[in-house]
Design a protein around this nucleic acid. Structure first.
Lengths: 153, 153
DNA sequence: TATAAATCTATTTAGTTGATAGACTAAAAG
DNA sequence: CTTTTAGTCTATCAACTAAATAGATTTATA
């Protein structure tokens, strides 16, 4: 389940992606535009900065902006930063492997084998979708809907 | 993230699947064999019974057994019963759709579009994997490993 | 040097997960 | 028909995590 934290983070990043190259945005503005509790968003953006996704400038004229172009920031990176590993069980995590406490034989564990497939499927999608991809898809959907409306008029 | 509850449930079901057709097994035995807290397992098996996955008999000679052959019980069903919807966000859930509180335009929501793909990928795997499939894959892996050992000797 | 804005530290609240205890009910055996 | 076995129900608890809040601090710019 995607946490609110990650949802908020993605919302803010999508705005920053849409306005990429136009200077930094204020936490307060992002919070208001997306109706996110301001202090909570501060915390989220800070984590994203520490992960190298965002950069910030303090003082007057400061704010947050993407550290890289929207094509180079994957959703996988964002979700991992805010929600932790993508894997449903730690023993199939690639980025944060951990042994299961009670699993007797990890190599033949039936649960592990299915969950490995699930992890790979999730990672495949999220690591190959960038912020820009998200914006594009959203725009595509909008076009489709407009098309339908035009047709109906 | 897969909860301990679901892991425990799957462990118990895999044993019941392996010994399918040989009469019911006791909660206490399953708990001991898999090192699961007994009372917790009672609760888990009861939920699975109410979901139609297990059947039980009380009294002497009683216990739990699968309500259907292991080929007809999917992991998806089990995970949904014990952990709830597969979807990472409720607005893309097929079995338990719920509107997001704050999403302005669901149809073009960029987050929703990616998460829909993720949900479909997860469901595709879990709904097409049965308990029997799990046992088979585990056995296959064991064979592979044995093969390697034989080769090395 | 005043001010704007991010950053840090701490704390709170609420909900979920995992686990436990004990009384109750149904079925089978003798 | 009574005893034993084994699942079922109700209640509760402790630990952990998610979500949110408050206030003090630091840094950079005008």
């Amino acid at each position: 389940m995607l946490s609110k934290k990650t949802k908020y983070g993605l919302q803010a990043l999508l705005i920053l992606a849409r306005e990429y190259g136009q200077g930094p945005l204020l936490i307060a503005d992002l919070a208001e535009r997306e109706r996110i509790p301001r202090k909570f968003l501060e915390f989220i953006l800070l984590q994203l900065k520490n992960a190298g996704v965002l950069q910030s400038r303090k003082g007057k004229g400061g704010g947050y902006s993407l550290a890289k172009p929207p094509t180079e920031i994957s959703v996988g990176r964002i979700v991992r930063t805010l929600d932790g590993p993508l894997a449903p069980v730690p023993c199939v995590s690639v980025m944060a492997y951990e042994k299961c406490q009670e699993c007797r034989d990890e190599k033949t564990c039936a649960i592990r084998l299915v969950m490995k497939d699930v992890r790979d499927a999730i990672a495949d999608i999220l690591d190959h979708t960038s912020l820009q991809d998200m914006l594009n898809r959203s725009a595509d959907e909008l076009k489709k809907l407009d098309g339908i409306v035009d047709f109906q008029i």
